[in-house]
Structure formats: C-alpha cells, structure tokens
Design a protein around this nucleic acid. Structure first.
Lengths: 182, 182
DNA sequence: CTTAGTGCAAAGCTTTTGCACTGCA
DNA sequence: TGCAGTGCAAAAGCTTTGCACTAAG
C-alpha cells in the first residue's frame, strides 16, 4: 500500500510533535489511563495494549486533529505489530464511549480529537477557527452560545444537548485582522 | 437506526420525494439559471444541460441535504444518460464557484446544499439542528454569532468570514423540550 | 472546427469485514 | 481455558481518473 500518497498535508503544517515508543503510560491521557480501564471493565470490555495506545495517541496532542492513518502511524511507533483495522475498530469504540470526537475540518480528511469529557452535555465543547489561507486550526472555548441555545429551544422546541461550531477566516499571521477585506 | 426524513441508509437510495423530469427550468434555482449561465460564461466554462440539471436538483429542495448519489438519481430522472462521474465533477465545480456547500451531518454521508448566495461573507449562513433521536435535520438562521465573532477577532486576531454551526439535541416530536433530561 | 465536457469503466483510497490466531480475564 | 480482541488480507464504498466520443461556442 502506497502510504505516501494519502499523507494528509496542508501547507506544510504536517510537523506533528515526534513521538517515541510511549504507549501505556496512562498519564497524559485526558481521560486518564486508569479511568479508561475502569470504563472498559465496567462495560465488560477487555483492556488491551492496543486500546490504551490508541487513546494515548489521540490524547497526547489535543490540537493535532489526527486522521486514522496518523493515529495508526503514531501507535505503530510504539507497537509496530498493531493493525490498521484495530485502529479503526478502536476509534469506533472510543466514539461510542464518547471519549473522542469526530471532526471535519473541510480539508477532505476525517479527523479525531480527544473529547471534552462530560462537559459536552452542558454545551461547553471547544470549537475551531480554520484559517482559509494557511489551513491552521485554532481551538477556543466559549459559553456564549448558551443564550442562542435558549432562544432555539423557545422558538423550535428543540432541546439541545451539544453543539459544534466552526469559524472560517484568516488568522493573525495570514493578515487576519489587519486586512480590510470587504 | 433513525429512519427519518432524508436519511439514506447504506446500500439504499432514492427514496426521496419523487422528482419529475425537471431540468433546465432555471427558475427554482436559488442562483437563477440565467445567473449561473453568466457565471459559467464569465469563467470561460461551457453551459451544459448536465451542469444546469445538477444545480437545479440541489436547489430544488434546500433542506434535502442531498448526497452525491441522490443528486445523481434526481438528475437521472430527467436526463437518464448522465453519468455519476459528471455529477461528481459538477459538484466539484459548484463548490469552487461557492454556489453550493458541503455539509457533514454526522450520519456518515457527505451532503451538499445550495449556498446562501453571497450572504456567507457577512456571516449569515443558516445552521442545522440535528435530532439525535430521529435524525431529522432542521435549518435555522441567526445573526447572533456576530457578537461572538467580534469577541474572537479581539482575542485571537482571527478575521472571520464565515461560520458553520451544528446543534445536537432532541426535536419537539421526539420529546425535545418536554423531557427533563439531566 | 476546436476542445471542453461527458459517459463509461477502471483505478484509487479509506474504511469495514471474514477468519484464524492471540492473549486478557 | 473461553471468547473478546487482533492481524491480515480481501471486500466494500465512495470518489477520481483515463480515454474516446459528443457537443458547446
């Protein structure tokens, strides 16, 4: 399989922090390795090195927005024997457990990031600023949408439990607030 | 599995509201057939029945959120000889012309909808309420985010030209604002 | 008349699945 | 030990691409 072709890249920003063989540490995880193990056990699921390694890879760099392939590569660095299918299966599992989120940054790649752990229910998820120029993605948090949510409930009867927001524009480095563009 | 409004299951397609052979009318289009033709001519591109038919199909039902396959089926009803590749190529073209938008409703399908025609620049795009229960998708408009955008510019220097918002919850029919869910 | 655009089929990629093996509980 | 979980490879989807033909300008 030619892996070079599908390498996600956008304007050279593919320099993710280098990772050594750092699996199963269980400390840098947002969820915490122990907590994750408990969740698995509680559901009658088995705790495997592969599962720990995948969650570890995703939580190590919350702003990396990794693709499945990138997660695979990161995990493989520490556990060369892991299979891509297992990565996909684990991603699926983590999504169902709401430990990670699937995000679409409109660059044609499906990406994943560590979840906001429980806070999502109260609508405090973080959001993304996407620079149309350099492709850089910046995260930010804001509870400002609560007022808007309140209004939506009143007008539509829609009870909101979560939301996702993406802003497109131009970051400071690309001339963002300096340029007077129509 | 939620079998709601416009929810195509995998391996099942074309159960959308039936559409007659209604291509090349050029009137129900948000852009207007004539306007579209002018845009094409202005770019030195050719005006073809296929292109008109694809834009027509997408703009006929702004809330349908059609997939490429569904667009193909709709167009085929009026022009049986069209090829799927042409639909994909036309979708690509329309995206580049900013006449349509690609949207991700988190159901595993890539969808397209007619663009908000120019208003996007001023941040007035419409957004989506996604019911986690029945999968129904409701659109709404709101300028409320302008204040939030203003704040983002101030704190991050990010100049915003567009945004996309998705709200997840439960629609009125599914018990939305009636249920006291923690 | 020129060549962009199209239809068809084949190729490409990403993600899923079948099956025998492995290792957690 | 038993069976969930895994690795591998094959399959399945969806989208793109090569090529000869068609039709817009």
């Amino acid at each position: 399989m030619p892996s070079a072709v599908s390498r996600p890249q956008r304007n050279e920003k593919g320099k993710l922090p280098g990772y050594g063989a750092a699996a199963i540490k269980g400390n840098s995880m947002a969820v915490g390795g122990e907590e994750f193990k408990q969740i698995l056990k509680g559901k009658g699921l088995k705790v495997t090195n592969q599962r720990l390694a995948v969650l570890e890879a995703i939580s190590e760099c919350p702003d990396c927005h990794l693709t499945a392939e990138e997660i695979y590569d990161k995990v493989k660095a520490g556990s060369p024997e892991i299979g891509l299918a297992t990565v996909y299966r684990t991603i699926q599992l983590l999504l169902e457990l709401h430990l990670i989120d699937r995000i679409d940054l409109d660059d044609g790649f499906v990406r994943y990031e560590i979840g906001d752990m429980g806070t999502s229910v109260s609508g405090h998820r973080h959001h993304h600023l996407i620079c149309l120029e350099c492709g850089r993605v910046t995260s930010f948090r804001d509870d400002y949408l609560e007022e808007l949510e309140r209004r939506i409930v009143q007008t539509t009867g829609f009870r909101i439990v979560d939301h996702e927001v993406k802003f497109y524009g131009r970051c400071r480095e690309c001339g963002g607030n300096l340029i007077e563009e129509k």
